[in-house]
């Protein structure tokens, strides 16, 4: 299997559907398989990054804790859409880990530099 530059684009909110959890589980597996993984949170996906989540209230996993596990799988290229954060009134120090904020132009460059983009 080739090692590829692989970007996961996370656009779904953390709760309400199983989408975010299953997407993050596939990202962790990509880390185990030693792909060069990047993750970009944008649109409602930025809510996955916000601290102070309590999934147990909903009887589900806490998505913020799964996000925090990414660096343990050697996934350290974690980006967030600055526009999506601003539109929701979320500050960088509200986040569970230090994601790098990107404007739209920088996101275009990030996507253009990948071999594979998984649009979740």
């Amino acid at each position: 299997m080739d090692t590829k530059r692989l970007l996961f684009l996370l656009r779904q909110p953390p709760y309400g559907t199983s989408h975010a959890l299953e997407a993050l589980e596939s990202i962790l597996v990509a880390g185990v398989f030693e792909q060069r993984v990047s993750v970009l949170f944008r649109d409602d996906g930025v809510w996955q990054l916000v601290g102070g989540q309590a999934g147990e209230v909903l009887g589900t996993r806490t998505i913020g804790k799964v996000v925090q596990a990414l660096p343990q799988y050697e996934i350290e290229d974690i980006y967030v859409c600055a526009t999506s954060l601003a539109a929701r009134g979320i500050a960088l120090n509200d986040l569970v880990l230090p994601a790098q904020p990107l404007d739209v132009g920088a996101q275009q460059a990030l996507i253009a530099g990948q071999q594979v983009v998984v649009n979740d």
Binding site: T3, E25, V29, A30, F33, Q35, V116, V118, D120
Partner: peptide, 21 residues
């Protein structure tokens, strides 16, 4: 199959196309 087969498909394909929900 396991999720690893998705990553294997990524590695073995020239293009990997996702049909999202």
């Amino acid at each position: 199959v396991g999720l690893g087969q998705m990553i294997d498909a990524v590695g073995c394909s020239d293009r990997f196309v996702t049909f999202a929900s």
